[in-house]
Amino acid sequence: MHLPLLVVTAVPAEADAVRAGADPDHVVVAPVGVGPAAAAAGTARLLATGRYRAVISAGIAGGFPGRAPVGATVLATRSIAGDLGAETPDGFLTVDELGFGESVVNADPTLLQALTTEIPGAIVGDVVTLSTVTGTQTTADRLAKSYPQAVAEAMEGYGVAVAAAGLPFAELRTISNPVGPRDRAAWRLKEAFAALSTASARLWTACG
């Protein structure tokens, strides 16, 4: 018997977009809440009450200009807790640098390779998980410098990755807006949701 794939999103609109493309016989889709804490708790609850072959954190995201344009599909090589750490007079220290844990979870390499093959044109790079998404150019520049391999920012991937606890994990995002000053008029939610549905149609082929 093939175990199903679990895909978790933050909000119902993202879950609907995934369901519009995903194979309903083999892919379970559930919205678990916004932010890394809600994502981790919701994913852990689902994993405690069901058996799955892999876990994917999916949804829309902000793309770093010059790395992931609006409308692009992104696959994470690593999901990074970008604001887990401490401020100091000399700048931000990650939880790793403080010696208190790890702020980076690698995507499962086999799953990532399969997804990359099945989703042509997907941009592969780090995805930064933030509790507060970027709204200023100053923060955008700081993040881009701190995470030179980051292609997108979102709010759940690291939490889902931690909750996956040994199961193959990946993060899939489609870009609705650039990272930086918030300009809702420039967001392309419809296009990002459509891209998410298109990418989701390939999930079971990659994971099955």
Rank of each mutant, 00 (worst) to 15 (best):
I56W: 05
S57Q: 08
G59L: 08
I60H: 01
G62V: 05
G63S: 04
G63N: 02
G63Y: 00
F64V: 11
P65E: 12
P65K: 13
A68L: 06
P69A: 14
G71V: 04
A76L: 02
A76F: 05
R78A: 03
R78N: 05
G85T: 00
E87D: 15
D90L: 15
L93R: 03
T94A: 02
T94C: 01
T94G: 03
E97N: 04
E97D: 14
L98P: 01
F100I: 02
E102F: 04
E102C: 09
V104T: 10
V105P: 07
A107I: 02
D108C: 04
D108F: 04
T110W: 11
T110G: 15
L111F: 09
L111G: 10
Q113N: 15
L115I: 08
T117D: 11
T117I: 13
T117Y: 07
E118W: 00
P120G: 11
G121D: 07
A122D: 02
I123H: 06
V124F: 07
D126S: 02
T129M: 03
S131P: 12
S131G: 13
T132V: 15
T134G: 09
T134W: 13
T136H: 11
Q137I: 15
T138M: 11
T139S: 15
T139M: 15
A140Y: 04
D141M: 13
D141T: 12
L143Q: 09
A144P: 00
A144I: 10
K145N: 12
S146M: 13
P148Q: 12
A150E: 10
A152T: 05
E153W: 10
E156R: 05
G157Y: 11
G157W: 07
G159A: 02
G159C: 06
V160W: 14
V162T: 14
V162R: 13
A163D: 03
A164E: 10
A165D: 14
L167C: 05
P168K: 02
F169I: 06
E171K: 00
L172G: 06
L172R: 01
L172K: 00
L172W: 05
R173E: 11
R173F: 05
S176F: 02
N177C: 07
P181K: 11
D183Q: 14
D183F: 07
D183W: 03
R184F: 14
A185V: 14
A186W: 00
A186D: 12
W187H: 10
R188Q: 15
R188W: 07
L189E: 05
E191I: 13
E191F: 06
A192M: 02
F193N: 12
A194Q: 06
A195W: 00
A195F: 00
